[in-house]
Design a protein around this nucleic acid. Structure first.
Lengths: 211, 211
DNA sequence: TTTTGTGAAAATCTTCACAGCG
DNA sequence: CGCTGTGAAGATTTTCACAAAA
């Protein structure tokens, strides 16, 4: 399974999802290609790989496509998550409304700072770390979103894994190391900034198309 | 210039930067490879491309490496940025301490909601959108960080570009479209979530090494 | 006649194997 | 020796060209 494809599948999902909401019932490979920023041929190849068939002259049916994408991504099942650390980033994420579409449900927000415990963050009451273990067990939580300080993130991560967490979404400014059976996504804003700056400094000056 | 390389260069910078701070004066390709998650050979290839030479038995000098990386990424010059929208995500980003290392300096925080104008977000006073134009001009701002609602993001983006912005870091849950001479980085938390969920559901179960 | 589907070619990226140097 | 440097081989990803279908 092409690794780069997974990068695109999530985008296809977004587009299909949006198209569905706006009442559109089919999308063409050209349309998908446009939004994802690749060639239309590749979209068709991708569709072949994930097992979605289209119809010449019509395109792909949004319903079919979305169903298959949900299946591939695993969004059909409910995906419970907890947020650890409710500083600025943590509380913003805990309140972020856009996760519902992906079946990601935040079931607990934790902080080791007692002055934050008990505060309301969106619809979540901040809980002390002591409660974390039970929440994981009770809800069968598999995903943890870490927004704790970099200095504590790895230690926290290790502990969460012993408690059964198998997916880590890390916003602390360090790259977390995990055993091979655990999925980790290191978001790292600093690296994002560096990449953007690179592209700003090396952006394409608009040139006339080659003859 | 290999596109995938740029993805790694920012990570090399992070590692080198950290190594320097902890007093380490050289790093080996194996060490860099370990952290970035690629083969050591590729690190050496990358170094050759960006023009960093190492020494057998020693590795790469952190000072040389960092200087070159700063140059390649364009972090030597100061990179002014503004933040538009100071909801949860916007204010978290405005206060994020990790950007200094990359020369990214936030010089203004804006919101169109008058009830937020005048509030203090970290060290920044929230300004009304009317002031945005002048701030861009006065500081020569090239980068805008958008955390406004998805519904307004594209319109805002278009306007910013007319005002001279050439780099957009977009946290709204839509993919912004920009002309080819503008750099855009669509961060999109929803898509990040979808990708993590995929990897959680398809993570490698630890198997015995092949015989 | 437009849009999908796909084998073959091209480009890109990654790993291998080993030479070279301190 | 241990680690860098690099040409050649290998794997993957992307594009091209065109057949097929509605």
């Amino acid at each position: 399974m092409p690794k780069a494809l997974i990068e695109r599948v999530a985008r296809y999902h977004q587009i299909a999802s949006r198209a569905g909401e706006s009442g559109q019932s089919q999308v063409s490979s050209a349309e998908l290609a446009e939004y994802v920023g690749v060639d239309a041929t590749m979209v068709r190849k991708d569709m072949a790989i994930i097992g979605v068939g289209g119809r010449p002259k019509v395109g792909y049916f949004v319903g079919d496509l979305l169903a298959r994408l949900n299946d591939v991504l695993g969004l059909s099942r409910r995906n419970e998550a907890i947020v650890i650390g409710c500083g600025g980033l943590g509380s913003a994420i805990a309140r972020y409304p856009g996760f519902a579409r992906y079946g990601l449900k935040i079931v607990g927000v934790f902080d080791s700072d007692f002055s934050k415990v008990g505060q309301l963050v969106g619809e979540h009451r901040v809980l002390p770390m002591e409660k974390c273990k039970s929440v994981i067990e009770v809800f069968g939580v598999r995903i943890a979103i870490i927004t704790a300080p970099g200095s504590r993130a790895q230690q926290l991560c290790d502990w969460l894994i012993t408690r059964g967490i198998v997916g880590i979404w890390n916003f602390a400014p360090v790259d977390l190391r995990v055993p091979p059976n655990v999925a980790v996504r290191n978001e790292n804003l600093g690296i994002g900034a560096a990449q953007l700056i690179y592209h700003v400094n090396n952006r394409t000056t608009p040139t006339a198309p080659a003859p």
